[in-house]
Simulated assay, not measured.
Amino acid sequence: MAKRSRTKARDSQPVEGEVGPRQPCPCGSGKRYKACHGAAGGAPAVFVNRPFEGMPSECDVVALRELVPAATAPLTLREPDPHGRSVQLCSLLPMAAPAMVRDSGQIWLGLQVQHNFGDPARDLGAVLLKALQTEEPGIVGLTDPPGEGPRLQDLVTDDRLDITVHDGFEYWIADVEDQSGMAAALEQANAAASPTARLTSVEAAYWTNVGTKEHLRWVMPEPEDQLLDALARLHAAGKDDIAPGSRFVGMFRAHGLLAPVWDLPVGTGPEPLEEPAERFAADLAEALADDSPLTAEQRSARSGLANRQVTIR
């Protein structure tokens, strides 16, 4: 029996590049692959590891989807809406709606939504096309997988997004004339949002205050292996602190990108991080350009960093 069991286990091992049925699903759900994207009739069959690749400000889009409570950015369409309506990308819409056609005619597109059909960029593209075909104000969403079609990055032309991080969700009602009866819902939404700010000296780095501590979370575009090597070099050289009293605590993986995370002393705020972040970006660029073999100390640091990764999606 033992021999047959060993043979069965050996035969069931995945070939290189595949995901084994008992391995964690790469979508980041926390389930085993056989119970998620590998299950018949389970999670969506389509899974895209880096769905926002090619999207203007890809790293910021990932941050707005996963980290930032309240932020907006205008989108420029490749083919302008025949009704002349503008489109605004939003981190979160009321009731986590996928999209809304506002009374003003403006189209709002939400990043933080309830549904997930495997490729969020394709979901966003389908929702946007549906909203562009909708003239009446209201919520627009998906109830079924969208199938083949353009992704959001196929529909826009921006080189980079002009992102505004808001103190709260007042932008939800900024274009509403009669705001009576909305105060309680807005207050509840604002109470659940952690204060957040985007650094201006570097791309896609966000400070946040969660009450008991502050963090800097920085979504980076470099390939994972190269970025881990570079971060290991900086860690071994003692150059991975972002500010006095800060501590590099690891990183998370979201939509195919890594985001290093630092704990900050309470009371730091975003402004004191601007110059250190810019200096860190320069040190990181130098480390990325170093193609020499890692030293033993650097390899040890890299192993520790790799073990401190958490996948969001």
Rank of each mutant, 00 (worst) to 15 (best):
P120V: 08
R22K: 13
L264G: 05
T311K: 15
P276D: 00
A96K: 13
A96E: 11
R313T: 11
E66P: 00
R160L: 07
L93A: 06
P276S: 03
D103F: 09
G138F: 10
V15R: 14
G211Q: 05
C90T: 08
A131M: 06
P26M: 02
P56E: 03
M100N: 06
K239H: 09
I312N: 07
R217K: 10
N307A: 13
R50N: 10
L264K: 04
A243W: 01
E58W: 01
D11F: 10
K34Q: 13
L257C: 05
A254H: 01
L294R: 05
G304K: 12
A301G: 10
A2C: 04
L152H: 07
G256C: 02
A236E: 08
A35Y: 11
V113M: 11
P82L: 02
P270V: 05
R22C: 09
R32L: 09
W207Y: 13
A131D: 04
Q88H: 08
D11E: 12
A71D: 02
L109W: 02
D178M: 10
L258K: 02
A40D: 11
G30Q: 03
A99N: 05
P293M: 06
A183Y: 01
K31V: 02
T143Y: 03
D123I: 11
R198Q: 12
W108G: 10
R50V: 09
V165W: 00
E135G: 15
L128P: 06
E177T: 15
L93Q: 05
E224A: 12
R299V: 09
R279W: 00
R50K: 14
N116R: 12
M251R: 12
M95P: 00
D167P: 11
R253F: 05
A277W: 01
G269P: 06
G267H: 01
E275D: 13
